[in-house]
Design a protein around this nucleic acid. Structure first.
Lengths: 172, 172
DNA sequence: TTTGCTATGTATAACAG
DNA sequence: TCTGTTATACATAGCAA
């Protein structure tokens, strides 16, 4: 933050504001991940790119071992505040049913989307029209995942070696 | 962050972990506010203090001019694609409601399971108690996926080379 | 436990290509 | 618009009281 303290007010310049947005959003999501992992807590971050009824995809982070739906449910339970809008018209029953119906439709779609992602991620079902860029991205993701798995395996082996070593010293 | 780089893994010491949690949570919420104000965007942060079904009140931040319910609604609207299916407004009885309710519960569970699989598959969230066998299986799956992606890339390259070749022959 | 300090690592505003 | 660099502000781990 060069040149004096950063005053916390809307950045007027469009270019600067967008640049700041991209950088700070990345920073926020990174911090969120660090907090979740270091302190072993559940949390979620949800960021929309433009504050109108915007077009852009939101970014979000959800800590390991949980999910947005779970976070929201817990929040509701604890605060006793209803976060998800329920329809509040004259005919409550019909509106409840409408809500549930939409929920089911949405959930089925999301399930399908997730299943497709999973199939793609396991190479079972690569999109036939995939471009080189898409394949490269997937390749990188898989390499990264593989590196993480192997790092974990190495740690596990080291741990076991260490245990064996201790056993040996005890025996000796 | 005195004494060497901070490795991003669970802090084992209880006292240190709680201290870090309080400090980092404050930092995260502050950053969230700065991002919302400086860049004029909508966002929310939700943090639970302990990751069990815990007792602690959650902390949250929600950007000015919006609310959690609005954020969640927008997120669902955008993420779930369109909810264009028609809703049958006939009288539905309690059995139907029960059915729908069970369907929702089941679908949410499945979604969570799929999200977890996906995170595991991308190495984002390897189960902490994973055995060597599990890790080996995952390793093999990833290798397989990588091989398929690369095979596809090779085909794509060959195809493009082939096209170039034909162009050349036509020109000649 | 909570508060405050400080050395050091990190995030990022401004700029350049 | 995106990417990389750098100087500076900011966040925070480890202590101490």
């Amino acid at each position: 933050m060069v040149r004096g303290k950063t005053e916390i007010k809307r950045i007027d310049n469009d270019v600067s504001r967008r640049m700041s947005f991209v950088k700070r959003r990345a920073g926020l999501l990174k911090k969120a991940n660090e907090l979740a992992v270091l302190c072993d807590v559940d949390l979620g971050v949800l960021v929309f790119s433009d504050h109108g009824a915007g077009a852009g995809q939101p970014s979000d982070y959800c800590s390991p071992h949980t999910s947005w739906s779970e976070l929201i449910q817990r929040y509701e339970t604890i605060t006793n505040v209803q976060l998800q809008d329920t329809y509040d018209d004259e005919d409550e029953d019909a509106d409840d049913q409408m809500f549930m119906f939409k929920e089911i439709v949405g959930l089925r779609r999301e399930r399908d989307r997730l299943q497709a992602s999973l199939r793609r991620q396991t190479g079972e079902d690569l999109p036939s029209g995939a471009t080189k860029e898409e394949l490269d991205t997937l390749d990188q993701q898989l390499e990264l995942a593989l590196a993480k798995v192997r790092e974990r395996k190495d740690k596990l082996m080291d741990q076991q070696l260490d245990e064996s070593y201790h056993k040996v010293t005890v025996i000796l």
